[in-house]
């Protein structure tokens, strides 16, 4: 059976570590964030079976984050932890702080893993993706010659979004890194090498994988 995945949002580092340890000891795959902003970003990846969140957190609190998620249709279990009384309908359960670890363990074990739907990628779609990479490689090389920084960044953005959907996680990571570098104040001259490498990589990926 696949391990359940839990997202923990807690700004107190001691309590965060304690919760991480507890969930790991229950055989769960864990990820922790320290504020509501990161909670929203992470939750929208839809990879977690359960969210466990503190209420009072910086940037965006647990209630605001949960309201945003519920409004966007997020329908997976969210468990809150609070020292005060909370009247909020978005949570599946509210645990009183200090947390009774035995009660938490029982609740986490009772909460079922979420059904997951696999992404459907057929041969035609995959071929379309790699052909597109080849086109982007030419566009990227041209934009690099013309020092069109914004076009370079847009291409990185496109590659990042697409590559991860098609299982090319390393390419997506590289595109994301270069996109951030292109957004920064670093002069384009200093990014030449990274850009050239990226153009070559796009060409290779597109060329070796494109199917007719």
């Amino acid at each position: 059976m696949t391990a359940k995945q839990i997202l923990i949002a807690e700004d107190d580092s001691f309590l965060r570590t304690l919760l991480l340890t507890q969930c790991q000891s229950l055989g769960m795959k864990t990820h922790a964030v320290a504020n509501g902003e990161h909670l929203v970003s992470e939750a929208l990846s839809y990879q977690y079976d359960i969210i466990l969140t503190d209420i009072q957190m910086p940037v965006c609190d647990g209630i605001a984050a949960t309201r945003i998620l519920r409004r966007l249709g997020y329908d997976r279990p969210i468990i809150a932890m609070s020292a005060d009384e909370v009247h909020e309908t978005g949570f599946d359960q509210i645990l009183a702080k200090p947390i009774d670890m035995r009660q938490l363990a029982q609740l986490l074990q009772q909460t079922p893993a979420q059904d997951s739907v696999a992404l459907q990628l057929d041969d035609e779609l995959i071929a379309l993706f790699y052909t597109n990479l080849q086109q982007l490689s030419s566009e990227f090389a041209r934009a690099l010659q013309l020092a069109q920084r914004d076009t370079l960044r847009q291409i990185c953005h496109k590659v990042k979004g697409g590559a991860a959907s098609f299982g090319e996680a390393d390419l997506a990571k590289l595109a994301d890194k270069l996109q951030h570098e292109l957004l920064s104040d670093t002069p384009l001259d200093e990014l030449q090498q990274s850009c050239q490498y990226f153009a070559q990589l796009l060409q290779q990926f597109g060329g070796s994988n494109a199917r007719t």
């Binding site: 929208l44 839809y46 966007l72 696999a118 992404l119 697409g162 590559a163």
Partner: peptide
């Protein structure tokens, strides 16, 4: 906006929307 899908796409994100 009614909802928000973050790339990369996944079956679960599309189903939720």
């Amino acid at each position: 906006a009614a909802t928000f899908i973050v790339k990369p796409f996944s079956g679960d994100k599309i189903l939720a929307a």
